[in-house]
């Protein structure tokens, strides 16, 4: 049972990293629907690098770097070129989906390194995730930089008039978001499930994206949501631990996705939005043109 919980927490870490990056990026007003793509690319790069160099740190670094680079690319399209954020995000996702399948294919199979050390069965990434949540919360709500980030996401015109460099802040947030997405992918391929397979995420990134909407853009609520989904996800992978013999294992796999839809509906209702949803950054998804 502890093993299941430890594994669930590791699964939540993957949701958490990606969603936290997306949260920071969205707080600055940039939506990246291609989150899954960044995770795929980060995970694949980490896996290939770790396997060829036999070094976890190098693999992790490669994952972070590629995630950051793709975040930067998204930023260039959305901030500098003021392109449609959905077009760019979808582009990144399909790009990553296609290219990682091609590039990673020769590496299909297990990583072949000693497993990342665990403490009482718990991966070191989980405490890192909790620390990052605390850091992100402190940064966003207790520092002037956080105030600047939130202002850029709410009303970039007001921020600019106060002397805040809107574009710089957006670039920083999108790139950090990308780095965290890369970290998330690397956590998957290096620690959680060190076996490369094409399209290994199968929707993790989109669930993470949904988690950001559930979180009301608050890192602590995000942590709770990610933990919940991590447990649910792990249970859906091994339902026999709870309900042996009931329904096919394939049916259980649909559960995390199926639950996401009604939650999305509830948080989208006017009832919910007028009570809790005020946290949504007002300029989210809108390109900002300096006058």
């Amino acid at each position: 049972m502890w093993e299941l919980l430890a594994r669930s927490l590791e699964a939540s870490t993957i949701f958490l990293f990606a969603a936290l990056g997306e949260l920071i990026s969205q707080r600055a007003g940039v939506l990246n629907v291609g989150l899954e793509g960044l995770m795929l690319f980060g995970g694949t790069a980490a896996f290939i690098t770790a396997q060829t160099t036999s070094s976890y740190p190098l693999g992790l670094l490669a994952g972070l770097a590629i995630g950051g680079f793709l975040g930067l690319a998204h930023g260039f399209f959305c901030i500098t070129l003021r392109g449609d954020q959905v077009v760019s995000g979808m582009g990144l996702w399909i790009l990553s989906f296609g290219l990682t399948t091609y590039l990673g294919n020769p590496y299909t199979g297990p990583l072949g390194l000693e497993r990342v050390p665990r403490f009482f069965g718990l991966s070191p990434f989980y405490p890192l995730g909790v620390m990052l949540v605390a850091t992100a919360w402190f940064l966003l709500f207790r520092t002037s930089h956080g105030l600047a980030i939130r202002s850029v996401g709410e009303n970039p015109g007001a921020a600019e008039a106060s002397g805040i460099p809107v574009a710089v802040i957006r670039y920083l947030c999108v790139t950090s978001g990308g780095i965290l997405a890369g970290l998330s992918g690397a956590t998957y391929t290096l620690s959680y499930n060190p076996v490369w397979n094409y399209n290994f995420l199968m929707g993790w990134g989109f669930v993470s994206l949904a988690l950001v909407f559930f979180s009301m853009w608050n890192p602590w609520i995000l942590l709770a949501g990610a933990s919940l989904f991590g447990i649910m996800w792990q249970l859906s992978l091994s339902p026999e631990l709870v309900l042996p013999g009931v329904l096919s294992r394939y049916v259980w796999r649909t559960v995390p996705f199926a639950i996401t839809i009604p939650i999305l509906c509830v948080i989208s209702t006017p009832w919910f939005r007028t009570r809790w949803g005020l946290a949504k950054p007002e300029a989210l998804g809108r390109p900002y043109a300096k006058e």
Binding site: R142, T143, S144, L147, R150, S151, N155, S162, G163
Partner: peptide, 21 residues
């Protein structure tokens, strides 16, 4: 920024208000 408080709006971007708020 309509979601922020008056004070947060006033200090936003002020060079002396840096780092921890």
């Amino acid at each position: 920024v309509s979601a922020h408080t008056v004070l947060e709006n006033i200090v936003l971007g002020h060079p002396r208000v840096r780092g921890v708020l």
